Simulated scan of single mutants.
Amino acid sequence: MVGSQLRVVVLVSGSGTNLQALLDATADPAYPATVVAVGADREGIEGLTRAERAGVPTFVLRVKDFQTRSAWDAALTASVAGFDPDLVVSAGFMKLVGEDFLAAYAGRLLNTHPALSPSFPGMHGPADALAYGVKVTGCTLFVVDAGVDTGPIVAQSVVPVLDDDTAETLHERIKTEERRMLVEAVGRMAREGFTVDGRVVRFGG
């Protein structure tokens, strides 16, 4: 996709601060990507409001509205495909996608994790890092695979752990760095292209 606008669909479940970072970046004509749609698994969330304020199309697919989880996954796959994205970004999307979605967007689905993978996977990365006593932690942008926070790493950024940190203060500083990392990495993927070779993600055509 080098030399053209990278089409991005963003999936959200909550406040959408990572989404907002991307929307702010794409408001600059020089930024080489555009958010073409925002999808959610629930209604009435700030992430959808952010998209609507930016004039970006939205869609909502609630798991409880489908008879099976696989039916929801197939519907999500079809809805995202309707916007013909080059890249899908999970930005605080609190549902695990299934086999259909992973197959359709293999190598093109990104997620962030508030720790330096492979350390501290799961839902409590900042608290786990603090409890372990590490002196630095950070955030990871990765290509989603079938595991939990196990996919090939696109980018990482380090955040120091301060003596007076709580899990909450540490997480807030990580999230600030996470937004910067996401915007920078997506921009670079758009400008330079990228490949996924096993566990290695390389920028460049």
Rank of each mutant, 00 (worst) to 15 (best):
D24R: 11
D145F: 12
V9K: 07
G55D: 05
A71C: 05
E177N: 05
F66G: 11
V158S: 12
L162Y: 13
A81G: 02
R173C: 10
F59D: 02
D65C: 01
R69F: 06
V136Y: 13
G205Q: 15
L6S: 10
G55R: 00
E99A: 15
R173I: 01
A115E: 05
L102T: 05
L110V: 05
F83E: 04
P32D: 05
G44P: 01
A25F: 12
V200I: 12
M94W: 09
R199C: 09
G133Q: 13
A155P: 11
I174S: 07
R69E: 04
L61W: 08
G147P: 07
S79L: 03
G16Q: 07
F194R: 02
S90A: 11
G107D: 08
N111S: 02
V63A: 15
G98N: 04
G82K: 13
M123V: 02
Y31M: 14
S4A: 10
A21I: 11
G151M: 10
V148S: 12
V154K: 05
A155I: 07
G122A: 06
D145Q: 12
V35Q: 06
A115Y: 00
G205V: 14
A25H: 12
R191K: 10
D73F: 00
V89E: 11
L22D: 10
A127Q: 04
L22N: 07
L170K: 06
P121I: 11
R199Y: 07
A103K: 11
L130N: 06
T137S: 13
N111L: 07
Q5I: 12
T176R: 11
V38Q: 01
